[in-house]
Design a protein around this nucleic acid. Structure first.
Lengths: 211, 211
DNA sequence: GGTTGACACGAACATGTGTTCGTTCCTATA
DNA sequence: TATAGGAACGAACACATGTTCGTGTCAACC
């Protein structure tokens, strides 16, 4: 299998660059113009090679039908609104309706990092160091689904009424009490009365940007 | 400011759906066909309203020039190869050359979650519970830049030669020794000889998919 | 009832865009 | 040198696609 020619590489790079700058792919004539090629059929010839090498996919007979194979696409990306903060001393700001929730910020990531393609999720920025027992740090972004019940083993944000405190832990029903287990396996669980616990949401993903 | 009409909402939703399924936007006739509209000028009319409401942007006089405004685009997404694992008992698999590194998997996320638009980064999947002092859990994905030196305060993956162990900690030069500080602020630092320490990479981002 | 503005329709046109075919050039090989 | 295959070229064509204009309908308002 031969190496790509210089021109083929240039075409591939141009497509990548074009997609960096636009939300639609280039036309054959865009490629032609940009690379100083004198005929659309040369572009076509080289696109055929790139397609045979599975570096691009061409949707035929429609305009701008070029897709880059290795790049991934928007199809696999989900956008989650960051709607506020989570801190120990307050209940979390659970949105009534995600469609209209105020979000100054969004976070985008591969759909396979979240359940159900990100439907129904919201994100909160962690404030403080009080969630380290959940292996969550100040400044981390946590992604949650709003729910008021859960399965055993789910990691949930709960509001502890007596302590007036929000915490993130694994949740287990045990007879007539609740066990809240830290994600940090070296730490002790807490046990509490079901009446003391308000589930606010289920934790699905954590993102930490360090630098 | 009026509500969107039913048809305008339908058009907007169709564009979103189309972009979920394709790497290029729909044409006006795609929209027309799909929604059973009898004339391209109706599509045009409603697109004009959506544009005036800043819900879409139209690049004029080119085919498939519609961009969704709220959605974000591939432009802000970076793709990072997941090239292996990080575990305590072995040095990490630092790639010679990221362009050609073998990656069965990639992770994609907003460029603002990583430095330098993700250039030069690779990802590793955490194996085991030995990084909890870095608030990193089994199964997490850590994103690193390959580097063999660092600044004070950088969180780095280091190979401790005597202990034959990889660890992730904040790195500080202190006179003739190195202080490695856990991200978990409640835990004690370790001090070691510079000769014992091999910096393998700088940690930039952590992602944890819980469910 | 008349008027106005929003919205839909149809048709036509202009141009954007992809495809195809035949020819020529270039390079490597025998 | 001759040959073959890869690659480039040019031209033409077909059709995909966006734009524009005029007309009609409907609902609200005076």
């Amino acid at each position: 299998m031969k190496e790509l020619s210089r021109r083929q590489r240039a075409i591939l790079e141009f497509i990548e660059r074009f997609l960096d700058e636009n939300d639609y792919p280039p036309t054959i004539r865009d490629i032609q113009r940009e690379l100083g090629i004198s005929s659309t059929s040369v572009v076509d010839y080289n696109l055929k090679v790139l397609e045979a090498r599975n570096l691009i996919r061409r949707n035929r007979n429609i305009s701008r039908g070029i897709e880059l194979v290795g790049r991934g696409s928007r199809r696999n990306i989900v956008t989650i609104p960051v709607i506020g903060q989570i801190a120990a001393g307050a209940p979390i700001p659970v949105p009534e309706d995600l469609e209209t929730a105020e979000a100054d910020e969004t976070i985008e990531l591969s759909a396979d990092l979240v359940p159900d393609s990100g439907r129904g999720l919201f994100a909160l920025r962690v404030k403080g160091h009080s969630m380290v027992d959940a292996l969550i740090n100040d400044g981390d972004i946590v992604l949650l689904r709003k729910q008021e019940t859960c399965e055993n083993g789910d990691t949930v944000a709960v509001w502890l009424k007596d302590q007036k405190e929000t915490t993130l832990k694994k949740f287990y029903h045990e007879g007539n009490r609740i066990r809240l287990q830290p994600a940090n396996v070296t730490m002790e669980p807490i046990y509490t009365d079901p009446e003391n616990v308000e589930i606010q949401g289920k934790l699905v993903t954590v993102v930490r940007a360090i630098s």
